[in-house]
Computed example of a mutant assay.
Amino acid sequence: MHTMWKGTISFGLVNIPVKLHAATEDKDIKLRQLHKECQSPIKYEKVCPVCDREVKQEEIVKAYEYAKNKFVMLDEEELENLRKEQTDKAVEIVDFVKLEEIDPIYFEKSYYLSPNEGGGKAYTLLRTALKDTGKIGVAKMMIRSKEQLAVIRVYENTLVVETIHYPDEVRSVADVPNVPAESEAVEKELATAKMLIDQLTTEFDPEKYKDDYRTALIELIEEKKNNNQTATAKDKQVPNNVTSLMDALEASLDRAKKTKPTSPKKPAGRKKTTTTTKKTRKQA
């Protein structure tokens, strides 16, 4: 399992060297966007609208937009120093609370914790203490350049870090539109609803729940693949320099012929007059 982060978890005078691993994975089917005409994947380019050209990665800087089109520039060195200051700090458990005291709306992402070298004994100590007390630890830690509020709890026989949102990241329910005010429910309807809930109540078994859409999508893809209903992106044609040069020369020649000014013809009578004049002079 890939190690995402190494650090130290501490509570009191106990320090536990640990490694962090992603506990979940995204299994969504990723669909590409193709050009319908030639079945080639669409490219997404970073383009500057003012310079009207594609911008390379080394030309891009980060900034905070504090007002419309007003920015505070932040260079990579400044950001790296801030990250290093926070990353070098040990993750300290500051409080112990009961899991049921935290509403699920706060939970964000789960990570497994494994002991690093020499941390097995302290890891076991914290795991056992959390199990016996039924508590979870609340801590702060840096993950992927962001300071996270997190809880540390036991899942089966493993310590798990659950990142949780800060209170100001959870939107107020007062902003949710069209929520009806609380009112007395009709007694008969309420009794029927409770009866239905009782009939559907069971123990939670995660294995019984499947992603039906993902399964159907995989089956559709496999069926099309087996029936040769596939497409191959066309290779980008590289222009032949000789042909391109010849075409350019011929086009230039045609253009020159069309635009070349024609010389005006001299009148026939004038030429005759000139000859007669020469003869007259000779006779004289």
Rank of each mutant, 00 (worst) to 15 (best):
D28A: 13
P17N: 11
E207A: 11
P239S: 12
L34I: 03
D235C: 04
V173P: 05
K135H: 11
D205C: 09
S145V: 10
L190Y: 13
N15P: 00
M246Y: 13
Q57L: 07
L126P: 02
D95S: 06
D247S: 06
K36S: 14
K84L: 04
G134T: 04
S172E: 00
N228D: 11
A251L: 06
R53S: 15
K140V: 01
K135E: 13
R171C: 14
E80D: 15
Y44G: 05
Q57P: 02
E77W: 01
P177K: 12
G134K: 03
E207V: 12
A193T: 08
H21N: 00
N227T: 03
L125A: 03
N240C: 08
I29M: 11
Y166N: 08
N81E: 14
H2T: 04
V161I: 15
K257G: 09
V186T: 12
T259N: 14
E85Q: 06
T24V: 02
E207N: 15
T274L: 14
A129F: 09
D52H: 13
D254S: 13
M141T: 05
I221C: 14
D211R: 01
Y209V: 11
D212Y: 01
Q229R: 10
W5T: 09
I136C: 00
G119L: 07
K98N: 01
A90C: 03
E77Q: 13
P49W: 10
K89D: 00
Y64Q: 09
E80W: 07
L82I: 13
I197A: 00
D211N: 03
D132V: 13
S183K: 08
T201N: 12
V160Y: 00
A256M: 07
V242D: 10
M73Y: 06
D235S: 10
K84F: 07
K27H: 07
L31Y: 06
G269Y: 06
N157K: 15
T202H: 12
E76Q: 11
Q237V: 09
R144I: 02
T273G: 08
N178G: 01
A22N: 04
E77D: 14
K43A: 12
L20G: 05
Y66I: 05
V151P: 10
A150Y: 01
V154C: 07
R144P: 00
E45S: 10
Q283V: 12
D103S: 11
T24I: 04
K266I: 09
R171E: 14
P49E: 13
A233M: 14
T232D: 08
D211W: 02
P167M: 14
L217W: 09
R153Y: 04
T128I: 04
G118S: 08
K265L: 08
K98D: 12
V160N: 08
D95T: 01
V238A: 09
E169H: 04
K265N: 06
V179E: 03
F71T: 07
I197M: 08
L130Q: 01
N15V: 10
Y64H: 12
T158I: 15
N240R: 03
K265T: 10
K260E: 09
E77I: 03
E54V: 09
D28M: 01
M195G: 04
D103A: 15
R127Y: 08
K89W: 01
L82W: 05
K109I: 04
C38A: 07
L130M: 01
Q229G: 03
F71M: 02
G7E: 07
E37Y: 02
K194L: 15
L31C: 02
Y209A: 07
L217V: 07
K36F: 12
